[in-house]
Simulated scan of single mutants.
Amino acid sequence: MIRVGLTGGIASGKSTVSALLAEHGAVVIDADLIAREVVARGTPGLEAVVAEFGADLLTADGDLDRPAMGRLVFGDPDARRRLESIIHPLVHRRSAELEAEAADSAVVVHDIPLLAEGGRAGSFDAVVVVDVPTEVQVARMVADRGWSREDAEARIAAQATREERLAIATHVVDNTGTLEELRRRVAGLHDELAGRA
Rank of each mutant, 00 (worst) to 15 (best):
R3W: 12
G5V: 03
L6V: 12
T7F: 08
A11G: 03
S12E: 09
K14T: 04
K14W: 03
S15E: 06
V17A: 05
L20R: 05
L21M: 13
L21D: 02
A22Y: 09
H24T: 09
H24K: 11
H24L: 08
V27N: 06
V27E: 12
V27D: 05
I29H: 04
I29P: 02
D32M: 07
E37S: 14
V39G: 06
A40E: 15
A40Y: 08
G42V: 01
G42H: 03
L46D: 00
E47D: 13
E47K: 12
A48D: 13
V49N: 01
V49L: 08
V50D: 01
A51C: 11
E52S: 11
E52K: 13
E52G: 03
F53M: 10
G54R: 03
A55G: 06
D56S: 09
T59W: 01
A60Q: 08
D61R: 08
D63S: 05
R66V: 02
A68Y: 00
A68E: 01
G70Y: 06
F74K: 06
G75Q: 03
D76P: 05
D76C: 07
D76F: 02
P77Q: 04
R80D: 01
L83S: 07
L83M: 14
L83D: 02
E84A: 04
P89C: 12
V91M: 07
H92Y: 12
R93L: 04
A96C: 00
E99A: 15
A103G: 11
A103R: 10
A106E: 03
V107C: 07
V108S: 10
V109Q: 14
V109R: 11
D111N: 12
D111E: 03
P113G: 05
P113M: 06
L114Q: 08
A116M: 00
A116Y: 02
G118H: 00
G119T: 12
R120H: 13
R120T: 14
R120G: 12
G122P: 04
S123T: 15
D125R: 02
D125V: 10
V128E: 05
V130T: 06
V132Y: 00
V132Q: 02
V132W: 00
T134F: 04
E135I: 00
V138T: 14
V138K: 00
A139I: 00
A139F: 05
M141Q: 10
V142Q: 09
A143G: 13
R145G: 11
R145F: 07
G146H: 10
W147H: 13
W147F: 15
S148N: 10
D151A: 12
A152Q: 10
E153S: 15
E153P: 02
R155E: 15
R155D: 15
I156G: 14
A157Q: 09
A158F: 14
A158D: 11
A158W: 06
Q159K: 08
Q159A: 09
T161N: 11
T161E: 13
T161A: 11
T161Q: 07
E163I: 02
E164A: 15
A167S: 15
A167E: 15
I168V: 12
A169R: 00
T170H: 05
T170D: 13
V173N: 07
N175K: 01
T176D: 14
T176M: 05
T178H: 15
L179K: 10
E180C: 02
E181T: 08
R183F: 05
R185W: 02
G188Q: 07
D191P: 02
A194D: 10
G195W: 02
G195E: 05
A197F: 04
